[in-house]
Design a protein around this nucleic acid. Sequence first.
DNA 1: CGGCATTGTTGCGCTGAGTACAACAATACC
DNA 2: GGTATTGTTGTACTCAGCGCAACAATGCCG
Lengths: 191, 191
Amino acid sequence: MLPYAEVVSIRAGRPRASSRETISEAACELFLEQGYEGTSITDITRRAGVARSSFFNYFASKSDVFWSGFDERIDAFEAAGARVDALATFADGFEPDSLALAFVNADQMLLGDELDRESALRRARIGRAVSTRLRADGMGALAADVVGAAHGAAVLAAVERWARDGAGRTRLPAVLAEALAVLRPLLVAHA
Amino acid sequence: MLPYAEVVSIRAGRPRASSRETISEAACELFLEQGYEGTSITDITRRAGVARSSFFNYFASKSDVFWSGFDERIDAFEAAGARVDALATFADGFEPDSLALAFVNADQMLLGDELDRESALRRARIGRAVSTRLRADGMGALAADVVGAAHGAAVLAAVERWARDGAGRTRLPAVLAEALAVLRPLLVAHA
DNA sequence: CGGCATTGTTGCGCTGAGTACAACAATACC
DNA sequence: GGTATTGTTGTACTCAGCGCAACAATGCCG
């Protein structure tokens, strides 16, 4: 559950025999070979050489293979107060990872609506966080919901665009800044 | 699959022995009594007096009990071209239904994140439709995604607000108009 | 009246995600 | 060497959703 727990093994019991990376890589390989839906969790753990139960020691769900890193960023953003002008820093230190891989290879992985669905959940999570913050800062509930959701959409649109562009060819912070700039008129009007 | 098929039984084989309403009502009763998660599809069909398989003749999934009516509206909106200025008519003829019931009794139904998740999916669907339309009308992809998502959020925020206000005490078209008005500055700036 | 196509209903078996939990293994610390 | 801690595994389970073949009830047409 704890990120990087295998690195910070100061306090210890039995050391981890397998890593999050091992399972993640096995999963991505299989997704590319057989598609996402066509790959069961049993398939993944077989290739990784661990028991099926172990998968859930590392990931809360199948889709978590893609999203766990992103979700940690949302956690951090929320913990920091979900300030709108902090959203630009959401992109800092973002590395091409399994999520970017998924966006790029969505067709080959037969991801279909899966990415859309999971993206929608994150959009909404960021949107809710921003909305809560905006309401606390005095904005009306309805406007806060709408403006919040728009910011969530900006983040996801930027990440998707950045990933599809090759995750390295363009700089994510720049793309995100562009997406957030679209919303400037909203913040000005509803300040 | 066809809505109101039991009414338009001009062309016929075996007539429907049970109705969508019967199952929907049984489901909502049980959701109120035992919570959403605590109610299995078998529970629902037992109370409705039909076989488990029959549930899926009427609803594509458990959550569909809440959302099937709303989804049909999105279908119609998409079929009509997803024009932004047609969104205001999304609310026309909206009646308090099982979805409104869910919003109002979310606590008692122990809906938890369920409504959030499913709402997010519809937000995204509307957002994608609007975005596609905006791109076709010449808007840049990134801006279209963001502006589209914002409109999706406006619709869902309005419906939720209207439902929670008592679904009848306020007029949905008015609430929706208010939500859409929040986004006016965006359309003006990116026309 | 009697077959026939059509449509709805039911039962059954199955896959696969996700949960719960107890048994067991490997480490650090004392 | 014992003990607490932490990771790993096996097993059993619930439940959503899919597929499908058998069966039932209707209208139609001869």
